[in-house]
């Protein structure tokens, strides 16, 4: 998403949009809607996996869905913030990729949370992907996630979303 919007900005597509009464928030929400649709598609894949190949379903489906929604919103909000301010597609890609790797490193994709050093784990609790992964694991195991692990993505979603709408540049 950041690359798309930064590309629009680079080519002056956003500038043309700026002459219409559309506020930046609406444009960002439209992009968010597209992103959420993609996320839902991946959710459908998981459901299909559960049904067709006998993946283990989440122990607490409501908690898993809530976690999923919050996590997706948090990640997209960060993407929107990058998209709002990145001056070019290259910068957008650079920032996006760095955040992606930082995210998965702290999120326990390379090493599971159990094997992380205590210090890294604490930092991970406050990163959106880290909190998201922990919450997802908890709900898969049949428990409600810790409040912190739900609050962190929620705060990221709200904060980055508002900041993105505020800092948005048309050109």
């Amino acid at each position: 998403m950041p690359t798309t919007l930064a590309g629009y900005r680079e080519k002056g597509i956003l500038r043309r949009m700026a002459t219409t009464p559309i506020p930046p928030s609406r444009l960002l929400l439209a992009q968010l809607a597209v992103g959420v649709l993609c996320a839902v598609a991946s959710l459908v894949t998981v459901v299909a996996g559960v049904l067709a190949f006998g993946f283990e379903p989440p122990g607490l489906v409501v908690a898993a869905l809530a976690t999923f929604a919050l996590g997706v919103l948090a990640i997209f909000a960060i993407g929107m913030l990058v998209a709002a301010v990145a001056p070019s597609t290259r910068v957008a890609t650079g920032i996006g990729v760095s955040l992606f790797f930082l995210g998965i490193a702290f999120g326990g994709v390379f090493t599971p949370a159990e094997t992380m050093p205590e210090f890294v784990l604490r930092v991970s609790d406050y990163t959106p992907v880290g909190a998201f992964m922990q919450a997802l694991r908890a709900s898969w195991g049949g428990d409600w996630p810790q409040p912190l692990h739900l609050a962190v993505p929620a705060v990221y979603a709200l904060g980055c979303g508002l900041l993105a709408a505020r800092l948005f540049r048309w050109e």
Binding site: G12, I13, M17, P21
Partner: peptide, 30 residues
């Protein structure tokens, strides 16, 4: 902005946006 139309010196639309879609899209802004 609802009352002023603007044709910019340099302007672009996404490459694959069709003519009819572009008009529908911009109409939806007003």
């Amino acid at each position: 902005r609802q009352r002023v139309g603007m044709q910019l010196q340099e302007s672009h639309l996404p490459d694959r946006l069709r003519v009819g879609e572009a008009l529908d899209l911009y109409a939806s802004c007003y």
